[in-house]
Amino acid sequence: MISLPKRTVVERFHIKEIVYFLLIIFLLMISSLTTGTVLSEFFNHDSLGQFAVLWQKMFHPAWSYWSYVVSPLLDTIRMALVGTLLGTIIAIPFALLSASNIVTVAWIRGVVRIICNLVRTLPDLLLAAVFTAILGFGPLAGVVTLLIFTFGQMAKLMFEAIETIDKGPLEALEAVGANKLQIIVFAVVPQIMNTFLSNFLYTFEVNVRASTVIGYVGAGGIGQLLQVTINQFRYDETAVIIFVILIVVVGIEFMNNYLREKLA
């Protein structure tokens, strides 16, 4: 006769799960006390009333506002595309210099990686605020912000992809006397091309979303229009902008998924 294994007391009474749940509650309480957050304020009469008014207006979108949204929307897509392209181009040599199977000098790799890491730690909103102050309000500040953001992200993704390629073709080309440029062109590029294109499409998708956010601080595009409608309490117009952003982001995501499947 086969007998089932006996469960321990901890397993029978789900003590581990209960401890985790109580720990989460405890951490929430500590966080609330530390930050001075009063959770009851989220559920008082005034907050719920404001929330109801906001949603009532947003559920009656001003569809006539659509004509004002098209031009900033195109600016947002152009910002994301140009920023992604330029940032990726600049990131390529840095990714190659960061890869241990391409550059054997450790200190060169270390310096390049430190530069990439420093760039990647800068928040996109901070970059947008800085370049808006330098270059003024408009898409140019947004393009430069997305360029730097793309550079940090693509440099990391590409150098990690380069370091995982098969070393056989590299060693074969080295054995016949090929130089570094020939090794990169004929051994590295063919192996990482699909990964590179997939990462590029993903970064472009992220940048379309990011361009909406950075536009809110004055970097141009539809985000700037979103800020204007919210500041004027025109939530019916805000609803139109949010709906358009949702459609564009979903469309780009479907397009990227389709292209990634074709590249696989």
Rank of each mutant, 00 (worst) to 15 (best):
G223V: 04
M29A: 13
N231F: 03
T84Q: 02
I102D: 04
D46Q: 09
A161S: 14
F149H: 12
G36E: 09
M193E: 05
L181I: 12
N179A: 08
L225A: 06
I162E: 09
F243S: 15
A95Q: 04
M158I: 13
I15D: 01
E163W: 00
I214K: 03
I214P: 00
E41H: 11
F243K: 03
F151N: 04
E163T: 04
A128N: 06
I115S: 01
F159C: 02
G136S: 04
Y68F: 12
P139N: 14
N256D: 07
Q56M: 09
E41F: 13
N101K: 12
S71P: 07
A141K: 09
R120C: 03
E261Y: 14
L22F: 14
L23K: 07
P93Q: 05
N199E: 09
P61W: 06
A210H: 07
F243D: 13
D236M: 03
V130T: 12
V130F: 15
M255L: 15
R113L: 04
I24F: 13
D124C: 05
V53D: 09
K156Y: 10
V19T: 09
E237Q: 14
S47H: 09
K167R: 14
S71I: 14
L201T: 05
L54W: 03
I214E: 00
A80P: 00
E163K: 04
V112F: 05
F204K: 03
C116A: 13
G138V: 15
V70T: 08
L48G: 07
M58G: 07
G49L: 09
K6R: 11
A172V: 02
L23S: 12
F21S: 10
L201V: 02
K6P: 06
